[in-house]
Design a protein around this nucleic acid. Structure first.
Length: 260
DNA sequence: ATGACCGTCTCAGACGGA
């Protein structure tokens, strides 16, 4: 199965690039984040014409997550929201079962700045994810939690550690909670399974030519259960989607494994 | 090319993003 996770930074603005991705990468499952659309504005028809069924959690102008499944794959048991999250109306978590695999698409709270209320809510959100991951571990089948975690797991995932001193995304508080999600769910960072220690970025600031200067972060992750980790064939970043006409500031992360 | 963002909403400028 081939899964893509991508923070599109507005599905409306990114629809041509999303259709390009479906055509060229031909994923079985797609986890989208920051769809930024109202429920009634979600482009279900266009995606259906492209050969994908969709479930989505749409909250209006901010956030929003979705899961797309290629036609022919069973898509069921979709559920929106996370028990215990601080602001359920923000539309940051959706999960479903696709072809027997439990898939979650998540857009973790940004946190704005250390010490602020949004940062406290980010930590609460991560704790709610750990609780859900533990619940999924007890369920049947394999699990993938994919999305924009807004955390750099290690210093290696930051282009310049000094530039992020005292900032969000790199604190031990955030990183410890990410590790707690992995432990609770029996999940592994797919990138670390296939490419341990390799620096790979998934996000580059639109400003100051950061992409072309190689200044990015790895904040988009796919956490996979052991059965998937053991069959991983490819974990890679589609850098071409960070180039060209109207790119997102995130590039899609592709995760492919043997079997369903 | 020695400077450099892009969405959203409401209508020039705020706000969020990371």
């Amino acid at each position: 199965m081939r899964l893509v996770t991508w923070n599109v930074n507005s599905l409306k603005a990114r629809l041509p690039r999303v259709l390009e991705l479906l055509e060229t990468v031909a994923p079985d499952v797609v986890c989208l984040q920051e769809t930024k659309c109202a429920p009634e504005a979600f482009p279900e028809d266009v995606l259906r014409d492209a050969g994908y069924a969709a479930v989505h959690h749409s909250g209006g102008r901010w956030a929003g997550v979705a899961i797309l499944a290629r036609d022919g794959l069973a898509l069921s048991e979709s559920a929106c929201g996370l028990a215990g999250e601080a602001q359920p109306d923000q539309a940051r978590w959706i999960e479903a079962v696709v072809d027997g695999v439990r898939v979650a698409s998540v857009y973790v709270v940004n946190g704005q700045a250390v010490g602020t209320e949004p940062f406290a809510e980010k930590l609460v959100f991560l704790e709610a994810m750990a609780a859900r991951a533990a619940g999924l571990r007890d369920g049947p089948g394999e699990t993938v939690i994919a999305g924009d975690f807004n955390i750099c797991p290690t210093d290696r995932d930051v282009y310049d550690v000094q530039a992020f001193a005292g900032a969000t995304h790199v604190t031990e508080e955030e990183r410890a909670r990410l590790r707690a999600i992995e432990t609770a769910g029996g999940l592994r960072d797919a990138h670390e399974v296939l490419h341990p220690g390799e620096q790979q970025f998934t996000w580059w600031d639109y400003r100051q030519g950061h992409f072309h200067r190689g200044l990015g972060l790895r904040i988009d992750l796919a956490l996979v259960s052991e059965g998937i980790a053991a069959g991983l064939e490819r974990v890679g970043i589609e850098r071409d989607f960070r180039k060209g006409a109207k790119p997102s500031d995130h590039a899609p992360l592709v995760v492919q494994w043997r079997g369903g």
